[in-house]
Simulated assay, not measured.
Amino acid sequence: MAGRVTVFVMCCVCDPDGMQLRQTMKLLLVGPKSPPVGGTTVLFDQLCAYLEGQDGVDLTVINSSPHVVGRTPVAIARFLARIFAQIRHHDACVLHASCTSKMPMVMVAVRLASLLFGKPCGFRAFGGSFPVFWQARSAAGRWLLARSVLRADQVFLETRESVAFAKGLTTTRVDWFPNSRPVSLPVHSRWGAARRFVFISHVKPSKGVLVLLEAAKALKGDDVVIDVYGPLQDGLTEAVFQDSRVTYCGELAASAVSDTLRHYDVLLLPTFYPGEGYPGIILEAYAEAMPVITTDWRCIPEITNDDCAIVVPVQDAQALREAIEALVNDQVYVEELRLGAAKQAKAFSSDVWGEYFLTRMRALVSR
């Protein structure tokens, strides 16, 4: 009786001379693609673009944006079924999501499919709200989180506070995966003491807009400019800027943020927004070698230090005004902060963190 030979074929990437370089890894990412353009979609798009440019990666993306998925029970069921069907054809799957009420349900589908097909799965949370989200859940909600998100093979959380909190709840691997931005560090023509200050964010009380208006009332220096960009929210209108030294300049497209920052000297973000994680606008300012004045709020101190930013108490208009005046009057201090911002930018480069994500995925698949 003739023997039977079983042949296993492995897909590999080779160089032009035929030398094997690396096995092709098939990754499935589930997350929010733009449009609309926002903090989470920008981050997810960045990572997808990085992975698509890497040799040895075969990437499939399932868009979880609500306007694509739909909001009806039937639409959500189809979305979950698509994830379930795709996981079997990939080496690993990672869900990228904000901490919302629907997130655990999606992660349950990912986790069940990964167990059924023997594929590793991961979870990445956007924002710094995981501890708050956990504490706000009922006993049943925490049970579901513990058996879905915290049973993933790999968990990525945006802030160190969130990582420390989650490590106390699970034995799975939990890693820091911060907000990041592309870094080019252009050479600026504007040097010297600061005269032009800018606020770019949602224009609402919890982002510190009213505190900024109060600080500007007694601000010294007739040539100091303070401009505000962003959508008006939570009841604020352009009327609050009347008879103020602060000028409201309207909304700003995400694609215009970097170019706009280059017309200013310092970013202002006196936020006390409850859901604040690592504000992307701070990292974008660093990428332009721009100093920041912000607040000692939630996880912001994790991405600031005395070399690149001035951190003031929350809702303290006097401290905010004094910080602005310190940069108006001290050219050497401003230039020191610019150098510090450029250094800080490199620590939050999207290329650096894209490579880290890829390294963790390769380790997950090969174990």
Rank of each mutant, 00 (worst) to 15 (best):
R4E: 11
V7M: 06
F8P: 02
F8Q: 13
M10T: 15
D17N: 02
D17I: 00
G18H: 11
R22H: 14
Q23R: 15
K26Y: 13
G31D: 07
P32S: 13
L47V: 14
Y50M: 04
L51T: 14
S65T: 15
A75D: 10
R78S: 03
L80W: 11
I83K: 08
A85Q: 10
A85V: 09
Q86D: 13
H96S: 03
C99H: 12
M105I: 13
A109Y: 12
G122Q: 13
R124C: 12
G128T: 01
G128R: 01
S129A: 12
W134H: 06
A136W: 00
A136H: 02
G141D: 04
V149G: 00
Q154W: 15
S162N: 10
A166S: 11
T171H: 09
W176H: 12
S180E: 05
P182Y: 03
S184M: 01
P186R: 00
G192N: 06
G192K: 09
P205E: 10
L210A: 07
A215F: 03
A218L: 06
G230T: 05
L232E: 06
L236V: 10
S244W: 04
A254F: 15
S258N: 01
D265R: 08
L283T: 05
A285V: 04
Y286W: 08
W297V: 02
D306H: 08
Q315E: 06
D316G: 07
A323W: 07
I324E: 05
L327T: 06
Q331V: 05
Q331P: 02
A347C: 09
S349W: 01
S350C: 07
S350P: 05
D351Q: 08
R367D: 13
